[in-house]
Design a protein around this nucleic acid. Structure first.
Lengths: 378, 378
DNA sequence: ATGAAAGCGCTAACAT
DNA sequence: ATGTTAGCGCTTTCAT
């Protein structure tokens, strides 16, 4: 019978005295190591393997790896041995199995309009970072602010259970979201002010108010009378709110909205260019233009300068969002700053409070302030 | 015994003749509908529910919903009835259970440096779109080109099985990736040219060659002699390749690299500003600067103009990537275009060919061309 | 053409 | 302090 054995450990070669028992274990180890080579897929090492090698039952292993404060105490020696085997085998618990059993997936999903939009990817990034701190993976879906895609997302969430959802819904209704919650028990937080489901935390900012106030500022402080508007599609809430705020502010200031002063784009630089060109070709050119997002405002800047208008002398431009690109152009863009990092933090924190059960009350509202940043374009 | 019954269907009220059998089913239906209301979590309707309501066995339901060409035929009437019940109950198969059993997750993961980087989010977006067409969800992880995070990602993939991985590895080695593949049987494709694992498809572009050629062009066609370089960290392959290509081109053209001509940034606009300022304060100012990414090139542009140098008369700037922002600044940036959409498409298509078994051969290489776009900054 | 039954890898209630 | 057992919801033989 072998008495002294050299076994290769992870980085070291250790020579120790081994008993016959250890010897059998070693053989088992080799067997398990080969296991993954031989069977093609599903070759991962399981808890059963660990248990067998450590000479304990599966449940003991389960108790040891479960990070929850174990309801029952476990022997120090057992813990040591099991942990050693886990390290030897390089065992990782299988999350698919765990989530099936424990109804816990350690997965959250985030539904946004478009990951390429500078405003949203900061939100996504922040949520991802916080999720990681909590040990969660993040599934990302884009909707391109399209209703079909939003509904498709909900269906995807019905079949793939996740623990939480961060969403930026443009069209989804309280009923649809409620249905999703009822069916899956998932926690939901939304970046939207038009939702009122009693279990959904929402974060939003008062974009209508900021629009209203900025139009006033353009008029009262900056002495503009002919103020035009480049909006975003109105079949989604922010688009409508900002447009109405514009109209109300103009009306209350006794300012006329001349024909053609209300343009609409689709969030892109190109659409901002088109809209601005239309505005500048008007018989009564506006002296200021309020643009509903920075990307379109950049397009407006580009066109105005290409047409040899001076900014802000001939035409002032105000954007919305405060994306970094606004500081790359000249003159630098005056804008209403959103704080996507704040959005992401509030969203993620609220979500994990619910997932982890710290918060169980009715849906909360978090308003994130907006801030006008005056740069060179006004 | 009831004979005629009014039951609420999805959107219609239908009045039909019902048998006693149907009546019982109806009661069962109500029971299942309530099920989700009552038990808080895990309240989703399962295949068992469908089976019971349709009066068939669970396996029959499974056969019907499995979209694979069923190995055995099923009665038309049975199919009809089951499908009806599925619709009534709004049943969706649970993917956690399915993946546990079938070793198939319908999930892919994508590991990138940073979703906020304009180059990468296009890759992510493209991969997401293609994944969706194949019925897959996408998990996104950022590494910030940090080795620890890359390793963390691999561990995450060990515990959460996915069917495929798209990665942009900066530090991961063939061995580590091989280990991941052996342990999980996952399919991997990478955006990298320095990897050579025999099961990994890789897509890449010849950035070293493009750098070399562009330095030559700056010298031969644009008559620059004092050409400086703003690089990215060299502990990752592209950084090193481009720097070496710069040195080689300079050397072969008989051009001297003056002290201070080799700056290094960290991909950000701010770091480009710092590097450019250092360059412009040099006693022998360069007349052209090759910048390793557009974001830093934008920083260089901003600083040069702020210091009242004319571009390209006093100093020419070439960037790398061709992100949209390069066309927002003035003068517009000359750059070497990468094609992130192409990257994403090749990556995703290659991955799904492997996942779906269309391709089983050794790792393939796909080279995506690069293209110099001359705009106003040279 | 359909049903019964055995697990996939794990957790947790229940026994010792 | 540790083992036994019963599933989570599904797929897939193997029977019938």
């Amino acid at each position: 019978m072998l008495d002294t054995l050299t076994i290769p450990c992870l980085n070291t070669i250790s020579v120790v005295r081994y008993t016959a028992y250890d010897c059998i274990n070693w053989l088992l180890l080799i067997f398990f190591m080969n296991k993954r080579r031989n069977s093609p897929r599903t070759a991962s090492v399981t808890m059963k393997d660990v248990a067998k090698l450590a000479g304990v039952s599966q449940s003991t292993v389960s108790r040891i790896i479960s990070n929850s404060p174990s309801p029952v105490p476990i022997g120090d020696e057992t813990v040591r041995r099991v942990k050693e085997v886990i390290a030897q085998l390089g065992y990782f618990p299988n999350l698919a199995a765990r989530s099936l059993r424990a109804q816990k997936t350690y997965l959250i999903a985030i539904m946004i309009a478009d990951i390429s939009n500078p405003l949203y990817h900061t939100v996504v990034r922040t949520v991802q970072d916080i999720a990681r701190q909590h040990g969660y993976d993040v599934l990302v879906a884009n909707t391109d602010q399209n209703y079909e895609n939003e509904k498709h997302f909900c269906e995807a969430m019905m079949r793939r259970p996740v623990d939480g959802i961060v969403m930026v819904p443009y069209h989804l209704t309280d009923i649809e979201i409620g249905n999703l919650i009822d069916r899956t028990g998932v926690c939901v937080v939304a970046l939207a002010s038009h939702l009122h489901h009693h279990e959904v935390d929402r974060v939003f900012s008062d974009d209508g108010g900021a629009t209203y106030e900025t139009i006033n500022w353009l008029n009262a402080t900056k002495s503009h009378q002919r103020i035009a508007f480049i909006g975003v599609p109105e079949n989604y809430p922010p688009g409508m709110r900002r447009h109405q705020a514009y109209r109300q502010a103009m009306h209350e200031a006794g300012l006329e909205i001349l024909p053609g002063y209300e343009q609409q784009g689709d969030f892109t630089v190109a659409s901002g260019e088109t809209a601005m060109r239309a505005l500048l070709e008007l018989p009564e050119r506006p002296t200021a233009v309020f643009v509903c997002n920075d990307l379109m405002a950049i397009g407006a800047n580009l066109v105005a300068r290409a047409m040899n208008y001076r900014i802000p002398e001939d035409v002032a431009i105000v954007g919305f969002d405060n994306i970094p690109e606004g500081t790359y152009i000249r003159p630098m863009l005056t804008t209403i700053a959103q704080f996507p990092k704040e959005f992401g933090m509030q969203l993620a924190n609220a979500l994990f409070e619910r997932i982890e059960g710290t918060e169980t009350g009715p849906g909360r509202s978090f308003q994130i302030p907006l801030q006008r940043i005056e740069r060179e374009s006004t």
